[in-house]
Amino acid sequence: MSDEEDYFLPLEDQRVFGAGIRRKRVPFVRSSEHELNTTNATTAAPNTGRPGLSIADKYLSIVMPKSSQSKTANSATEQKPAICEVCNLPLYPSSTTTTTTTIDNNYESTDTHKPHESSLAHQLCLTHSHPPSHLDRTRHGLRYLSSYGWDPDSRVGLGAPGREGIREPIKGRLKADTVGLGADGDSDDDESRRKVGIKRREREKKAEKNRPARVEKLNAKEIRKGDLEARRRGEKLKEMFYQREDVQKYLG
């Protein structure tokens, strides 16, 4: 049981490689029956006392040679916070404990590692390994491009060095309606809120449109009433008109 577990855990590490070397680290605990796991990778490590740590060290020195350099630079000029070469952030030795505790408990005590490397910003700036291109390797067109030195997995476009072009064709989106620009945005937070607002306004607008339509559908009684009112208004106007002095004078 435990054998199997130990076997799979380092593999888990490998899968995330440079990307998550310590971000999602699985905590290790020494086995109580250490003599039994002789063939295991963890115990077969060099005898430095802290095998897990030294492996990680070596691992780091391979994957991140630059960050280890910056580490030494940091120790040399202690008063000025050095800038990390990978993520362009200042290295603060004091911030060690605060940041690391949350991320991983095991390494907090061991001061050999600068916790800066485990910060999210730093991790994101590391070069990642990428999955290979989806292009079908048997394609005639790919063969041609490869023969002129283009590598589909290199993640660069075509063109003169330094001026490479796009890597994926431009995608079009079919627009079959006449919805205005910005009104059919994606599920962006800001936009969805706006969308809700629009819908409400639209509903209101529709309601407004519907109202006069409803008036036309009055029942007989209401029509009679409206008719009466209109007549009364007309009479009032007539009255006002004919009762004006000058008009009456004119009419004699």
Partner: peptide, 8 residues
């Protein structure tokens, strides 16, 4: 330069 797929 165009996308590699388009050229292919």
């Amino acid at each position: 330069p165009p996308a590699p797929e388009t050229l292919m």
